[in-house]
Amino acid sequence: MAGSGVRLRLSNALGRTPLTIDHATLATQLSDAVPTAKPADLTFNGGSKSVTIPIGGEIYTDPSAYAATPGKRLMISLHLVNDSPYLVQHSWASAATQYVSAVGSGDHTADTTGTAFTGTGVFSGYFTNILTGIDVTTSDSRPTVAVLGDQLVDPFVDATTPGLTTPRLSDDLATALQTNEQGVPDYGVVATGIENNRLTTEQTRGGPATLTRLDRDILTLPGVTTVIVDEGLEDIVAGTEDTNVEEAYATLVAQLRGWGFKVVLTTLTPCQGYAPCTTAIDANRIDTNTWITDQDDFTTPKVTHADTESAVAIPVDPNSTTEPLPLKLDAGTAPENYDTGDHVNLTANGYLAATGALDLTTLGPDN
């Protein structure tokens, strides 16, 4: 989204020690850890360059003038002063890459080269620490769509699986809104992805369940009018009964509507061929999808669904007479190559196809 200013959301919500930041900067990325120009200082609490985020706390930077342009990547740099044995991490953050300098190498937030992020003791990857959001200031009161979940399944089982770092539904939705020819406004899009993608179960790696983190994942986000729920398959393939998942969905939808949010539920994509996806598990997935497609309610705030299953699925056996027809991810020739090879996670083209199942004209606030 284009805008004239930004502010950053920094979090220590699941931290174990306070975090002290004594310098934070903002720039446009040239490449890797190199900015296009000298980074600009960011401040906190009305002008201070330093801040301490307590255990369990979150903080925004002061608003900063910055010409945000769609398609241009921001570079956020933070210098931590105190020792912290553990930083809360969002792994497999497809739209972000983090570069970490060697411990004790000093403050590099104002560097104009990437030298400090090469050599011994440095590392990088598709993850983020501390930074959990970027708000863009627009000239109008533009609505925002939040995508709750990231549709990843067991991302830590095989870290080499293709597709785990590809653009996902939230990324593709932002692009679709920018380029649509239907006259749909370029709404803001916020990814509130959860790496283990569970609705109900607390995860050691993955954090609190969705139903226990809506306060910071949805309620504290400015301007949100619509929530796309893009999760549930992880629960199913982990063995959660469809009735329990449906109950969790019902609770989630009731809470979101009670707070005034429009809700879009996505159907669960196929998992046939993925080892944990037994016949019984897939039956639970099918039953859950039947429940999802029955939830459309056009009283305000509305509940609708997007059939992402149909967007990426083909029959396991086209000649089968079984009802319902068993489905699997299409592993055909690009652009219809939706299966990463593990038969459950989507490729970049798979996420594009799933995004195509969304009706952009229904994403704005109810009239």
Results as ranks from 00 to 15, higher is better:
3 G>Y: 11
6 V>S: 07
11 S>T: 14
12 N>S: 13
13 A>T: 11
14 L>S: 14
20 T>C: 05
22 D>Y: 04
29 Q>F: 05
31 S>D: 09
32 D>T: 04
36 T>I: 07
40 A>M: 10
42 L>F: 09
43 T>W: 02
53 I>M: 11
61 T>C: 02
63 P>K: 04
68 A>K: 14
81 V>C: 03
81 V>Y: 01
88 V>M: 10
96 A>R: 07
102 A>P: 02
103 V>H: 11
105 S>D: 04
111 D>C: 02
115 T>I: 08
116 A>M: 02
118 T>H: 13
120 T>E: 13
122 V>Y: 10
127 F>Q: 15
127 F>M: 06
130 I>H: 11
133 G>V: 02
136 V>L: 11
140 D>N: 14
144 T>G: 02
145 V>H: 00
146 A>S: 15
146 A>D: 10
147 V>A: 10
158 D>F: 10
163 G>L: 08
174 A>V: 03
178 Q>I: 00
180 N>T: 01
183 G>L: 02
190 V>F: 11
193 G>Q: 06
196 N>W: 07
205 R>W: 13
212 T>I: 08
217 D>A: 13
226 T>Q: 09
235 D>C: 02
237 V>G: 01
237 V>H: 03
240 T>W: 05
244 N>P: 00
244 N>C: 01
245 V>R: 02
245 V>A: 14
252 L>N: 07
255 Q>A: 08
280 A>G: 10
281 I>S: 06
283 A>M: 08
285 R>I: 01
285 R>Y: 01
289 N>M: 08
290 T>M: 04
295 Q>E: 05
298 F>I: 09
304 T>S: 14
305 H>V: 03
309 E>F: 02
313 A>Y: 10
320 S>G: 14
325 L>S: 11
326 P>L: 00
331 A>G: 15
333 T>H: 00
334 A>K: 06
335 P>T: 12
336 E>G: 00
337 N>Y: 07
338 Y>N: 01
343 H>K: 05
346 L>Q: 14
347 T>M: 10
349 N>P: 06
353 A>Y: 04
355 T>Y: 05
356 G>E: 03
